[in-house]
């Protein structure tokens, strides 16, 4: 029988929110860094997909986690670099370029997958190396909360550490202050001698790295293989979470958690065979409302 109480009193529900939030949070932080610099990074979905693929494949071919990470992150950097070169150097519309990158990476992963694994749908026959799961001993003694916070993947903890890193980067470093200046008033930034293109490029690169980590969580976390289109829109959801959270790290993190709560809740509903669409649609509707409150207030 369906009971909300049962869902909400289960620590597994909350634990799964944290698990699900990992790639979304990485993407949202990536979107945040780019957006503070005034350069929307719509290529998150493609970057995530590409690094999920190359991380899984490189780690499987070399049987080394480190090389897998390097592979995954460098593919994210390459795509980010393409985005920067085309949109800043060759003055392409950054949104169009990002759309091109999304299509390109969907094509490249789909094209190369049968080449490296001989399968067209996934790479299950390759033995990818996964990130370790972390067991924190002292959390065992804390009931409920301990169960929620313990035994997650390295990348999940890293995502939450990145929240603080991004906070420090944006608020406490000269780069963060320059980035904000570039995003808010590029003309003024130029007049005080900042190189707008360079600063935006660095921001997009950082954004790509963060999103790349999110991608690797998908193929080198609980699952040790790559599936076609395995990101399933998480890059876009990260972008939406950033739109909802605005320019603050904390609200962006909170909205990433909101989106993952929606997803986790919809999984719980699926067990009871209830329609999940409205739960999945809710975070987007909330984002829409918030966007409009913001637009109205201008």
């Amino acid at each position: 029988m369906f009971s909300l109480k049962e869902i909400f009193s289960d620590s597994y529900f909350y634990s799964s929110i944290i698990r699900i939030s990992t790639p979304i949070l990485f993407a949202a932080l990536g979107a945040l860094v780019a957006s503070v610099g005034g350069a929307p990074n719509v290529a998150l979905e493609g970057i995530m997909l590409m690094s999920a693929f190359s991380g899984a494949v490189v780690s499987a071919l070399t049987q080394s986690l480190t090389l897998g990470i390097i592979g995954g992150l460098s593919s994210a950097l390459i795509l980010s670099a393409i985005l920067c070169i085309f949109s800043f150097k060759y003055r392409a519309n950054i949104i169009l370029t990002a759309i091109a990158i999304n299509i390109l990476s969907s094509g490249l992963t789909g094209f190369l997958m049968p080449v490296v694994s001989g399968q067209t749908g996934n790479t299950t026959n390759l033995e990818s190396i996964v990130f370790p799961q972390i067991h924190i001993a002292f959390l065992d003694h804390i009931p409920f909360l301990g169960e929620i916070l313990n035994n997650h993947h390295l990348l999940t903890y890293l995502a939450y550490i990145c929240v603080f890193i991004v906070f420090i980067l944006l608020k406490k470093t000269p780069f963060g202050i320059h980035l904000k200046a570039v995003g808010e008033n590029p003309e003024a930034a130029v007049s005080v001698g900042l190189s707008v293109g360079k600063i935006k490029t660095v921001a997009i690169m950082i954004s790509g790295l963060l999103t790349g980590l999110g991608g690797m969580f998908l193929s080198m976390g609980y699952i040790s293989w790559f599936t076609r289109e395995m990101t399933g829109g998480r890059g876009w959801i990260g972008l939406a979470a950033q739109a909802l959270g605005g320019k603050s790290v904390w609200t962006v993190t909170a909205s990433a958690l909101l989106f993952s709560t929606g997803e986790s809740f919809s999984y719980s509903l699926q067990i009871y065979n209830l329609p999940t669409e409205w739960v999945q649609a809710l975070p987007f509707a909330i984002t829409l409302v918030v966007l409009f409150i913001y637009l109205k207030s201008r």
Binding site: I82, F86, A92, L96, T97, A100, L104
Partner: peptide, 8 residues
């Protein structure tokens, strides 16, 4: 798309 967008 990439090369079409790159007007520069």
């Amino acid at each position: 798309i990439l090369f079409f967008a790159a007007e520069g």
